[in-house]
């Protein structure tokens, strides 16, 4: 199999079959009250970028510092640090490249670090024993999967604006139930790649 088709399969796997939100149940917290597709897409892009960066940083930290120094028990703290640095870098990047975008993101991107998909992807890469290149791709494709998930969820939630959802289910509960049904649909990808 050529490199290209391997990468393509990896892409399909990360975005659809093993979608980080719907198949791994990570990163849902950001979707509780996301109602606008535009905001969701912006947020998804930020997360995708941060995921790529944090994957690389976490891998480097693990291989260059933790393993040689015999501090593997500090992995969780180290990965959290990698996530924070990645988000901080993305924030600087956004301010430099797209001031308008950064403005619309409300000044600080730091809360994005609380997204468990970021920490999750770093751990996933470590568990799978990826090389640096694989880890970066995994971060990027996983981030794309997150982007797809959050945009689909935002579309559904915009649509649900007109629905007569019972008062007790409004907000987080109905978002969870919607995610459940979307996750069911995503099971169709099982076995692809």
């Amino acid at each position: 199999m050529s490199d290209f088709s391997r990468i393509l399969l990896f892409l399909v796997s990360c975005v659809f079959t093993q979608n980080i939100v719907f198949a791994r149940a990570l990163g849902f917290t950001a979707m509780g009250d996301e109602r606008r597709v535009e905001t969701a897409a912006g947020y998804g892009l930020v997360v995708a970028l941060a995921m790529t960066l944090s994957s690389a940083l976490a891998w480097l930290l693990d291989m260059l510092v933790l393993v040689p120094a015999g501090m593997i028990h500090l992995r969780i703290v180290a990965f959290a640090l990698a996530v924070l640095v990645a988000v901080w870098l993305v924030e600087k990047l956004a301010v430099a490249a797209r001031p308008a975008l950064a403005e619309s993101l409300g000044g600080s991107l730091m809360p994005v670090a609380a997204n468990c998909a970021l920490l999750g992807i770093a751990v996933l890469n470590y568990e799978a024993g990826y090389t640096l290149g694989q880890a970066v791709l995994s971060g990027l494709f996983g981030g794309l999967g997150f982007l797809v998930a959050i945009v689909l969820m935002a579309g559904v939630q915009e649509r649900l604006e007109t629905s007569r959802i019972p008062e007790t289910l409004k907000g987080m509960p109905i978002a969870l139930i919607s995610a459940s049904l979307i996750a069911l649909a995503f099971m169709g990808f099982t076995g692809i790649a």
Binding site: T29, R36, T39, S104, G107, S108, M110, P111, V112, A114
Partner: peptide, 28 residues
């Protein structure tokens, strides 16, 4: 539409509603 993203996520992190905080905590 441009309601700041940061603010949105921040509401999730600063909410005073304990039930919502519990549910958000359970998600990961």
């Amino acid at each position: 539409m441009n309601t700041s993203l940061g603010a949105r996520v921040e509401t999730a992190l600063t909410t005073k509603n304990p039930a919502l905080r519990l549910a958000l905590g359970a998600c990961p």
